[in-house]
Design a protein around this nucleic acid. Structure first.
Length: 423
RNA sequence: GUGGGUGUAGCUCAGUUGGUUAGAGCACGAGGUUGUGGUCCUCGGGGUCGCGGGUUCGAGUCCCGUCACUCACCCCA
């Protein structure tokens, strides 16, 4: 093949569209039920927006951005959705007219990474953000919304893990405390821990290695470092979840990679998937709007990746439940003389609202029947000399094999009735 | 970015220590059935063996490079 899709980019073929539409529809309906409105920011933003919001020393900014230099400006394909939405919020002036905004978007994001199963360079996210408030119920609301998304798709036992990263002083203090705690025993730890110690100290606490976990046992607890305010907020999030029957386990290992996160961070996991079980990640980012030049208003959000979701549905055998869409009619010419009549009939049926297709490959009657019976159509309509002579059409219901002659003038109403009855 | 694995027909795969015209199942086409799909039977069309180079009398098979996919890391949706 002379050309293939660029690395990490893939086509969503017609066969896969039904499952994608299902994801999008579940996302839209659910977001709507929670009062979230769709927003569609551009795919390209000023590169500096991402550097400012995501953080200069993150993997995303350091090596994963698709950047275009055009004229004297630098644009980058969005590696995540939050920055663009926050920018759009401020540009639209919501901070003045209606600061509390529940927003969502569904669309492609781009990261220059090594592709893997469920991880592509272009990937689709369902991104939900609530800007303009610090209310802990919103943190819980988003956890609930994210969990319901997966439950709606048929996943049972979605696990919620939450943590708080503090906010400013307590966050730095906790980080220092962890660093001081780890320092004396770093030599005994694994390579990964040593690299994380440099890059993102808190992730050392998430090491799966047996001896490292042992060393982590007496690590300082975040809850002890949080300011009374932040501790109160964290507890309020948890009780808001409890109040609606959502179980959430506190997991000190959850540390979002992006700079803008504050206070609540959370992940959703599907235990059925084993080690790589993360379905969704999100959290609060209370100073992002301020950092982008707006007022210091709170905000919280999450993102769900569709590629990963599809992998999960596949592994749990849930994707087969999405049935392909059928076309209504395949119109067949029983002999050459009927081809023109079939062409006119197809046009008529399309006007009447039926999804209709006919043969353009000069196939034999048998081959046309085979085409009709291939599983993509509900009815085969047969027109030949006989039908033309008596002004009728043979209507065959392909699933049952039942066939009847229908007077041409009644065809539309008969078809309509049969489709309504699901016959 | 690091380290493994894989790449043969539209799809899933077989192909012996290197040896003649590279095979199967499914799918596709024609016929059995002169106006009828799904079952069955017969026949048939389909291949730059991912791409490029090398070793050899001879390469799908061995070597090197490259691209893609994939798995485990890093990181994350």
């Amino acid at each position: 093949m002379a050309f293939q899709a660029a690395r990490g980019m893939r086509d969503v073929l017609p066969e896969e569209i039904p499952i994608w539409e299902r994801l999008e529809s579940v996302a839209r309906v659910l977001a709507g039920r929670f009062g979230y409105r769709e927003i569609r920011p551009p795919l390209l933003e000023d590169t500096k927006l991402f550097i400012r919001s995501v953080g200069e020393v993150t993997d995303i900014v350091e090596k994963e951005m698709f950047t275009l230099e055009k004229g004297d400006g630098s644009l980058t394909l969005r590696p995540e959705g939050t920055a663009g939405i926050a920018r759009a919020y401020l540009e639209a002036g919501y901070q003045h007219k209606a600061p509390l905004q529940r927003l969502f978007t569904i669309g492609p994001m781009f990261r220059y990474e090594r592709p893997q199963k469920g991880r592509e360079r272009q990937f689709t996210q369902f991104d939900v953000e609530c800007l303009g408030s610090l209310d802990p119920r919103l943190d819980a609301e988003l956890v609930d919304l994210a969990a319901r998304f997966f439950e709606e798709l048929g996943l049972e036992q979605v696990e919620v893990r939450i943590n708080s990263m503090g906010d400013g002083a307590d966050r730095d203090q906790y980080r220092d405390a962890v660093r001081m705690f780890l320092l004396p025993h770093m030599a005994e730890r694994c390579d990964l821990c040593r690299s994380r110690f440099e890059r993102n100290v808190l992730r050392v606490l998430d090491c799966k290695n047996e001896t490292c976990r042992e060393l982590n046992r007496d690590a300082p607890r975040l809850i002890d470092c949080l300011t009374p305010d932040n501790r109160g907020h964290f507890e309020a999030v948890q009780s808001a979840l409890t109040a609606i029957g959502r179980k959430a386990q506190v997991d000190p290992g959850i540390v979002r990679g992006l700079d803008y996160y504050t206070r609540t961070v959370f992940e959703l996991h599907a235990p059925a998937l084993g080690a790589r079980s993360a379905l969704c990640g999100g959290g609060r980012y209370d100073h992002l709007l301020r950092d982008l030049g707006g007022p210091d208003l709170g905000a919280v959000g999450f993102a769900i990746g569709f590629s990963g979701t599809l992998v999960v549905l596949e592994q749990l055998g849930l994707s087969a439940k999405v049935s392909p869409k059928l076309l209504d009619v395949y119109a067949i010419a029983a002999d050459e003389s009927a081809r023109e009549a079939v062409w006119k009939l197809a046009s008529e049926l399309r006007s009447a609202g039926f999804a209709t297709v006919y043969d353009v490959e000069q196939k034999s009657l048998k081959a046309q029947m085979k085409q009709a019976g291939g599983g993509a159509y509900r009815f085969a309509l047969v027109l030949g000399e006989r039908e033309l002579a008596e002004n009728s059409v043979q209507v065959k219901h392909l699933a049952t094999g039942r066939q009847q002659g229908v007077v041409r003038a009644n065809l539309v109403s008969v078809l309509r009735t049969m489709l309504l009855e699901g016959a």
